[in-house]
Every structure is written in structure tokens, then in C-alpha cells.
């Protein structure tokens, strides 16, 4: 059995924005904790969820499937998923799996929050 190193903590830097600080390996075993984090963030009123991958060590193909499942749940509630902190390798994986067509990828948290602010300033259309 592979060692389970996955953790996720939820914090709210702003109203209606939640950041998921992901640490360790993302795989099928991460599902319950990731979905619990989603439930927590939703209950707190988050409409945008920023996935922070700076602390992620590894993700396999099941981990990508997990992100799709999370995306489906978010889309059902008109919530937005954004990612940041991916290294070049995992940015390529997001492109390979075309997950980047549904989850916008930013360099870091500051860039992600700035993009949100600019988007809010222009209005959503």
C-alpha cells in the first residue's frame, strides 16, 4: 500500500474565495478529504476555489480524474475552479489532459487573485 501523504487545508483570504492548500501525493485515496474540503468551502459561501498545488509532490492519472470530479461538483453550483503553483511538468499534464480548458492555471496565488479582481472589475458576461 503506498504511503498516504495527502493533506488539504481550506482558508478564505477573501469573502466568497477559498484556497485549498494541497500537500503530498494526489491520487484516488485523496478523494474523501478533497471532497470534504469542497463541502467546507461551499458551506462557507465560496463561489471561487483556488487549488494551491505548491505543496503537491506527485499526481497520478487517478488524481487527474479526481480533479474532474471536483470540477463537476463545482460546475453544478456555478462555482469556479482555478489552479496555481503547478510546476512546468504538471502544467504540461494539465495541457495534455486538456484540464486547462476548464480550470484556469495561474503562476501563483497573487496572479490568481489579481486575475479574479480584474475579472470582477470588468464584470462577468
Amino acid at each position: 500500500m503506498p504511503e498516504d501523504t495527502f493533506t488539504v487545508e481550506v482558508r478564505q483570504p477573501f469573502d466568497r474565495v477559498a484556497v485549498f492548500d494541497i500537500v503530498g501525493d494526489v491520487n484516488s485515496g485523496s478523494e474523501s478529504r478533497l471532497m470534504d474540503a469542497y463541502t467546507t468551502a461551499t458551506a462557507a459561501g465560496a463561489s471561487t476555489m483556488l487549488l494551491n498545488f505548491e505543496g503537491m509532490d506527485y499526481m497520478n492519472s487517478s488524481g487527474i480524474g479526481l480533479l474532474v470530479t471536483l470540477l463537476v461538483r463545482a460546475q453544478r453550483r456555478d462555482q469556479q475552479l482555478v489552479a496555481f503553483g503547478l510546476d512546468d511538468h504538471y502544467r504540461e499534464i494539465f495541457e495534455l489532459t486538456r484540464l486547462d480548458e476548464a480550470i484556469t492555471v495561474h503562476l501563483d496565488e497573487a496572479a490568481a487573485l489579481e486575475a479574479m479582481r480584474r475579472g470582477a472589475g470588468r464584470g462577468q458576461g
Partner: peptide, 8 residues
């Protein structure tokens, strides 16, 4: 052809 994931 391009790859087609569950999102597509």
C-alpha cells in the same frame, strides 16, 4: 487528432 478528456 487531439486527445479528448472527460471535460471535452
Amino acid at each position: 487528432r487531439r486527445l479528448s478528456g472527460a471535460v471535452q
